[in-house]
């Protein structure tokens, strides 16, 4: 299984734990990731707010840089995933627009044939391509007794069909159950974390974050498992601010699903980026899984 790998800007620093755990877990599962050389930012939601053609041209440069012998690209970040997939789809569905994007690329000596590269999210690769048997085979440290709430967020499950339910996705639920975890049926699993509103309108963003944390706590969740750097930042990084704002006392670790895979596969937590989260995960993990993990 070989994929072009698009880490995206968040995974360089803010979500380095996601990048480390993606690479560790992929190695173990036989997923070959070839990082796209000299990739650029996907523009998040910000470029689309200003100039659609420029937004798509910026994104399409990454698609154009995928080596000719590779026809699939995997992105762990939800915004990157959607931007890459959406740009390709726009170019396929609207050939005139596709031509304009290629006119832009030509200014940089590049060209992209719409539809050539299939854009995948990391979760889909592990659940759909690697599959249950191969994942279960690697589990040496089952997550038995750990209650986890799978949190999908928005942009992987909507609006592009990723072969899951856009209202109530199940892929991560299945994956975490293969690891032996107790998976909480989390009603708000595909609701919004507030996205960039933490930067623009804190009261609005904090309320969306509060609902997600409150709901998880109501279901006696030990930790929330996410698949997007923005979700992780909003729920983890802003958790103490949200507590201050509402007078709540949430203390929920927010971890990436690849970190949990790594733990179940027996990988050293340090290599998986444990310790980078602001709400620490180790105490509850060691209490539930029994003993030292290092």
């Amino acid at each position: 299984m070989k994929f072009a790998y698009y880490p995206g800007c968040s995974l360089e620093r803010n979500a380095a734990a996601y990048d480390h755990s993606v690479r560790e877990v992929s190695d173990l599962l036989g997923i070959k990731l070839q990082e796209i050389d000299d990739w650029n930012c996907c523009g998040a939601t910000e470029y689309f707010s200003q100039n659609e053609l420029a937004a798509c041209a910026v994104i399409a440069r990454n698609l154009a840089l995928v080596e000719p012998q590779t026809d699939q690209i995997v992105a762990p970040c939800a915004a990157c995933y959607l931007n890459l997939a959406k740009t390709d789809k726009l170019m396929v569905d609207h050939p005139e627009f596709g031509k304009e994007v290629n006119q832009c690329l030509a200014a940089g000596g590049l060209k992209y044939e719409p539809g050539r590269v299939t854009v995948r999210h990391m979760l889909d690769v592990i659940v759909d391509d690697v599959g249950e048997t191969a994942v279960r085979d690697k589990v040496v440290r089952p997550l038995a007794g750990l209650r986890v709430a799978p949190y999908y967020g928005c942009q992987v499950v909507r609006p592009i069909d990723n072969n899951d339910n856009p209202e109530y996705p199940m892929k991560m639920d299945h994956l975490l159950s293969w690891l032996g975890a107790e998976v909480v049926d989390y009603p708000v699993k595909a609701h919004c974390c507030g996205g960039h509103l933490t930067q623009i309108s804190e009261p609005q963003a904090f309320e969306l974050i509060r609902r997600l944390l409150q709901n998880a706590q109501d279901y006696n969740t030990d930790m929330i498992i996410c698949m997007c750097p923005m979700c992780q930042l909003n729920l983890d990084g802003y958790q103490s601010r949200v507590n201050g704002f509402f007078g709540t006392e949430f203390k929920l670790p927010i971890m990436y699903f690849t970190q949990m895979l790594g733990i179940a596969f027996g990988i050293d937590p340090q290599k998986l980026g444990f310790g980078k989260e602001l709400v620490t995960a180790m105490p509850v993990l060691e209490a539930k899984l029994g003993g030292q993990l290092v």
């Binding site: 000299d38 650029n40 100039n51 041209a57 440069r61 940089g108 590049l110």
Partner: peptide, 25 residues
């Protein structure tokens, strides 16, 4: 926790990207 860089990363082919962006604009 090593989650924030004080300097930006610059891609090697920044001129190429800028040419693409300028054309789009």
């Amino acid at each position: 926790r090593g989650r924030m860089a004080l300097r930006p990363t610059k891609i090697r082919q920044i001129e190429q990207l800028q040419a693409i962006i300028n054309k789009a604009k």
